[in-house]
Simulated assay, not measured.
Amino acid sequence: MDCSSAAPAWPTDRKPPWLRAKIPSGSRYDAVRRLVADNRLHTVCESAHCPNLGECWSKGTATLMILGDICTRSCRFCAVHTGRPGEVDWDEPRRAAEAVAAMGLRHAVLTSVARDELPDGGAAVWAATIRAVRERNPDTRIEILIPDFRGKTDDLRIVLAAEPDIVNHNVETVPRLQRLVRPQARYERSLGVLRAAKREGFPTKTGLMLGIGEREEEIASTLREIAEIGVDILTLGQYLRPSMNHLPIDRWVTPEEFASWKELALRLGFRYVESGPLVRSSYHAEEQVI
């Protein structure tokens, strides 16, 4: 069946009942909010309008976003602001490490905006942050969700030399939709990041959004290609439109279809698959490793 041409089970202008997220509340949520604000840090939870913010912050965890909150790219699915970033904040690695310690994280997830205006794409800040988090939190696993560094292998090596525990880079969508969804990125370049990390011996992870216009056979083909690289962990989630200026939702993917894609991905060789409407890159990240 071609999923993109099938009659939708739910109107795309209304969220279906299976997309209800937890409302932010509780003392641990308030503590995380204060911690992020007091340390002048950014989170992808807030900047990308993650639907799981309430659940994760109420558990005392957040995904830190380094290198500021202004991205040099204009991906048409992403809520993070696009523009000219400010100066690099070299104290940010220390504050990130302190925030991880304050949250008591056993598994810390770090991500960043794209900083294409910097000669190294922000690789030096990435490396400094990984090392600072490691020094302050020696028993914490560090998962990084990195940009593609414009395909510059030397910049990627700077990050990998800091020895994170897991390397994540999202391909986001099927090859046909890449230029539409993320115009400054390239599918083959993203596969190259995953191949390079795998060659260096790092556990690897990637993710795709569904419901943005892809076809069933394209999803299956993309999963096979990623599996052939040897990527260990896969996340599949529903695309949610951040604003009317972003790409429209093509369809709501049902929990049953997500379960089917998980079954296929496991057969293809992925070691762990998180697949569901509200799944995002760092959702249940600690459980994926365990």
Rank of each mutant, 00 (worst) to 15 (best):
A9Y: 00
A9P: 07
P11M: 04
K15W: 00
L19A: 06
A21G: 09
A21K: 05
G26M: 04
S27E: 14
Y29E: 14
D30G: 09
D30H: 02
R33F: 04
R34Q: 14
L35G: 11
L35Q: 11
R40W: 06
R40M: 13
R40Y: 11
T43S: 06
S47W: 00
A48F: 08
C56T: 08
S58D: 09
K59S: 11
G60W: 04
A62L: 01
T63K: 11
L64G: 05
I66Q: 14
G68K: 02
D69R: 12
I70Q: 14
T72V: 02
C75Y: 01
V80L: 10
H81R: 14
H81C: 15
R84T: 15
G86Q: 14
V88I: 03
E92G: 02
P93T: 12
A96L: 03
A97Q: 12
A99L: 12
A102Q: 14
L105W: 03
L105F: 09
R106L: 06
R106Y: 01
V109I: 05
L110K: 02
S112P: 10
V113S: 13
R115Q: 00
D116E: 08
G121W: 01
A123M: 02
I130H: 09
A132S: 15
A132V: 07
D139F: 05
I146A: 06
P147Y: 01
D148L: 08
D148V: 13
R150T: 15
D154T: 07
L156C: 08
R157Y: 06
L160D: 06
A161S: 15
P164V: 14
P164F: 12
D165W: 04
N168Q: 02
R176P: 10
L177N: 10
L177S: 12
L180R: 10
R182V: 12
R186M: 03
V193L: 01
A197H: 00
R199D: 11
P203K: 07
K205D: 05
L208T: 13
M209T: 05
L210C: 09
G211C: 03
I212T: 11
E214H: 10
E218K: 08
I219M: 10
A220I: 07
L223H: 06
L223R: 03
R224S: 13
E225W: 00
E228K: 02
I233F: 06
T235N: 07
Y239Q: 02
L240P: 08
R241C: 07
P242S: 05
H246F: 06
P248K: 09
D250Q: 15
E256V: 00
E257I: 05
K262W: 00
E263A: 10
F270S: 07
E274S: 12
L278N: 09
S282P: 07
A285P: 04
E287F: 05
